[in-house]
Design a binder for these strands. Structure first.
Lengths: 349, 349
DNA sequence: TTGAAAGCGCTAACAA
DNA sequence: TTGTTAGCGCTTTCAA
C-alpha cells in the first residue's frame, strides 16, 4: 500500500506515449508555429490526460531566467508593509512572475543573508525595503546584474530605481494644519530608527515650523524606542508614548510619527484629565484602520501603500525589459492628510 | 561604456582557472571528504576571489529539490496573517529553505492558480491557509507528492497535517466570562465568511450559552459583511458593526468575532450615550495591538500567531523527512482571553 | 513539419 | 584524490 507519488510526468513521457520526439512535444506545448495542428492537439490531449506540468527549474536553467522576483522587507506586521506585500504580490503574479519573500527584521545581518539567497536563487530582480545601515551587499547584487528597486527608503549611493512616500510632505502638512489651527508650541514625537523616513518627517516638521514663523528648539523633537529586530510585533508601542507623556509639560499640539504613538498619547492624556483637541491637538501618521474609530477620531497621514507597491513592481519590470543603463528613476508619492476630531477645535480652526 | 554585467561565474570558471575538473571543484565546495586539503583551499580561494555563487536552479534540477516551500495565504493585511507570515518566514529561513509567497484574497480561482504555480515551481512542500470552498486542486498537489500543512482552517477531506487556533474555545471563554459577569441576554456578532473559524466561534458561543443555562435563539447570532477578495484592505470594517448597532435593541453583552467589530460598536454606543461596560459589555477577538489602548480597553481573545506559524513549518519539515504516509497530525493551539475594562463591571463581576 | 544533437550548471556514479 | 561520463528536464540550433 505504500505507493508513494509517482514521479512527475515530463515531456519525454508525452513524447514516448505519442511516438514523437521530446522536441516536437516541447514546441507543441510552447505554441510555436512549426507544429501541425493535429500533432499539437494530440500532444495537448496527452499532456492534459497525464497531468503534465512544466518543470520551471529545467526551463529556467535553459532560459537563464527563473521568472521570479524577490521581495525583501523588514517587517510584515507593520500594516503599511502588509499592504505593500499584497499589492506587490498581486502585480508580480499578474505579470507571470513568482515572488520570493525575505524578511530582515531591520537587521543588516539578515539583509546580507537575504542578498545571498537572492543571488543563489537567481531572481530576475528584487523589490527592497533596505535597512539602510550598510549597502555593500546590495551593490554586489546590483553588479551581478539583478536590478533593484528600493521602496520607502532609498540608498542613493547605488543609483537604483526608488519609489517611496513623500514623508516630509506628510509631516509638513500635519504640522502646518496644527499651526493653522492656532497651535504655537508644537512637539514632534518620533520613532528612534535611524532611517530616512523618520529623518524626512523631522525635516517636514522643521520646515512647517519655520514657514509658520515658529522656532524649533531641539527639545521639541523627541523620540521613543521602537521594537526593532522583531517582525513578530509592531515596531511601535503605544506604551512608549504613554510613558513619555506621563510627566510631560504639555505643548499645544503633538505631531506623532505613528498612529500607535498617538494612541498611547490619547490614553495618557485622558487619564491626566485633558481633552483632545480642546487642551491639546494630536496628529497620527499612517492612518491605520482604527484611527477613524477611536473615541476621539484621529487626524492622520494616509499612506499610499498600494500605489507604492504597484509602482515598484512596474519600475522593476520596465528595468528588466529596457536598457539596464537608463538613468534611475526616483518617485515620491504624496500622502494625504485626513483631518478628524483630534485636531478639529472649533475654537481654533 | 555599456559594459553590462558579466555572466555569473560557474564551477567551470573555477575549474579552468585552477586546471581542475568541474567535478573536483564541486566536491571541494560541497565539503565532501574526497578532496585534498590543498585543493579545497585553492578552490575556495578562487571561488571567493571571483565571487562565485552556486546556481540553485541547476543544483535543484539535479537533486530534485529546490529547497523551497510555498506559503499560500489569503490576506497579509489581516494582522494575524501578517504575524503568521513573519513567523513562518523566520522558521523556513532558519532551516535553509526559501519561501515562495502566494496571496489568494479568499478567491478559489486565485487559489487554483496558486496550486499551478506550486506545481510548476516544484516546491518541496507548502503551508496553506485554504479558502475552503473547494479543494480538488489541493488534492492534486498532494497527490503529486508535495506535502501540505493547512493552517488556521482545515480541509479534513485531504488527510493533511493541520495547525490552527482553537477558535471555539476562545469564543467559549469570552462568552462564559460575560455570563459569569452577569450577562443574560448575549448577542454574537460575526463575520459572514463561510469558513470554519467563524463556524467554530459560533459553536463556542452556543456551547457557553448552553452551559450557562441560556437559550440561543437564532436572532442572537448576527453577521455583518466582510470585505472579501481584497487583500489590500482589512477584511473587517468597524463601519459595518457601527451600522449594525445603530438601531439595535441592546442586549447585556455583545461577543464579537473581531476587534474591529468591537471598535465600531464602541463608537456607536458612545454616540448613543451608552457606557461600556456599565450598560453593555463587549469582547473582541484577535487582541490587536490597539485593544489595550482604547478609551475603554477591550477584553479580547489573543491568538497565538507565532506559535501556529512555527508549528506549521515544523510539521511540514517533519513530514518531508519522515514517512509521508504517517497519519496526519492535527493541532489546535489554545488562545487566551485577555480581560480588560470593556467587560470588567465592578457591579457585575 | 519533425528529429537529432547540444547544452544550461550542477551532482553522482564510476573509473583511473 | 581526481577525472570521466552521464543525466536532471527543458529549449534552441540545425538537418532531414
Amino acid at each position: 500500500m505504500t505507493e508513494g507519488p509517482r514521479p512527475r510526468p515530463t515531456l519525454r513521457d508525452i513524447a514516448t506515449a505519442l511516438g514523437l520526439s521530446v522536441n516536437t512535444v516541447s514546441r507543441a506545448l510552447g505554441d510555436k508555429d512549426s507544429v501541425s495542428a493535429s500533432t499539437r492537439a494530440a500532444v495537448q490531449a496527452e499532456a492534459a490526460r497525464i497531468g503534465y506540468v512544466p518543470n520551471t527549474l529545467a526551463r529556467s536553467l535553459v532560459l537563464g531566467s527563473a521568472m521570479t522576483l524577490g521581495l525583501v522587507i523588514t517587517n510584515p506586521s507593520n500594516p503599511f508593509y502588509a499592504q505593500l506585500i499584497s499589492s506587490i504580490e498581486l502585480r508580480v503574479r499578474a505579470q507571470g512572475y513568482s515572488l520570493l519573500l525575505l524578511v530582515t527584521d531591520e537587521s543588516v545581518e539578515n539583509e546580507q543573508r537575504a542578498t545571498e539567497a537572492l543571488l543563489r536563487s537567481a531572481v530576475d530582480g528584487a523589490v527592497v525595503v533596505p535597512v539602510q545601515a550598510e549597502w555593500d551587499h546590495w551593490r554586489r547584487v546590483r553588479d551581478s546584474g539583478i536590478p533593484l528597486v528600493f521602496v520607502n527608503r532609498d540608498v542613493p549611493e547605488l543609483d537604483c530605481d526608488m519609489v517611496g512616500v513623500d514623508y516630509e510632505r506628510g509631516s509638513y502638512e500635519a504640522t502646518s494644519h496644527l499651526i493653522a489651527g492656532g497651535a504655537r508650541r508644537l512637539l514632534l514625537l518620533e520613532e528612534d530608527l535611524p532611517i530616512t523616513t523618520t529623518a524626512d518627517r523631522i525635516t517636514g516638521f522643521r520646515r512647517a515650523m519655520a514657514d509658520g514663523g515658529l522656532e524649533v528648539s531641539d527639545d521639541l523633537i523627541r523620540t521613543v524606542p521602537t521594537r526593532r529586530y522583531d517582525s513578530l510585533a509592531l515596531p511601535w508601542q503605544p506604551e512608549e508614548a504613554y510613558r513619555f507623556a506621563q510627566s510631560l509639560a504639555l505643548p499645544d499640539a503633538i505631531v506623532t510619527g505613528n498612529d500607535y504613538f498617538a494612541l498611547g498619547l490619547l490614553r495618557i492624556l485622558a487619564e491626566r484629565g485633558l481633552q483632545v483637541p480642546r487642551d491639546l491637538a494630536i496628529t497620527g501618521y499612517g492612518d491605520h484602520p482604527y484611527a477613524a474609530y477611536l473615541q476621539t477620531p484621529l487626524t492622520s497621514v494616509r499612506l499610499p501603500a498600494a500605489e507604492v507597491g504597484t509602482t515598484a513592481v512596474d519600475l522593476l519590470l520596465q528595468r528588466l525589459k529596457r536598457d539596464a543603463n537608463e538613468r534611475p528613476r526616483k518617485t515620491l508619492i504624496r500622502p494625504e492628510l485626513v483631518v478628524r476630531a483630534s485636531t478639529r477645535t472649533p475654537a481654533r480652526l
